[in-house]
């Protein structure tokens, strides 16, 4: 196990943990930020897989723009998820 492989596994674990947080959180703003963290960790994974082009595109689109759109949508609706 080199440092590179350990970093890859750590980044993928963080990705899955952030995705689970996005499902689990009740505060929709925090859930949107967790979804942005998924995009950021995915971009790190792409960078570790030697694809910096895809990493820049993923960091711009997946981590920043979709989070901004979610935050704008949450601002126009309500912040808490309704209990069933």
């Amino acid at each position: 196990m080199t440092v590179w492989a350990i970093l890859q596994v750590l980044v993928l674990v963080f990705t899955v943990v952030s995705a689970a947080l996005a499902v689990w959180l009740r505060d929709l703003l925090a859930a949107a930020l967790a979804l942005g963290a998924v995009g950021l960790f995915l971009s790190l994974a792409f960078y570790l897989l030697l694809a910096p082009d895809v990493a820049i595109a993923q960091a711009g689109i997946g981590a920043a723009l979709t989070t901004a759109i979610f935050i704008l949508a949450i601002r126009k609706t309500r912040r808490r998820e309704e209990e069933e």
Binding site: D53, I56, A57, A59, G60, I61, A64, L65, A68, I69
Partner: peptide, 11 residues
């Protein structure tokens, strides 16, 4: 990629 980064600044 550059356009996406600049657009995220606008966002």
């Amino acid at each position: 990629q550059g356009g996406a980064v600049a657009a995220s600044a606008l966002a």
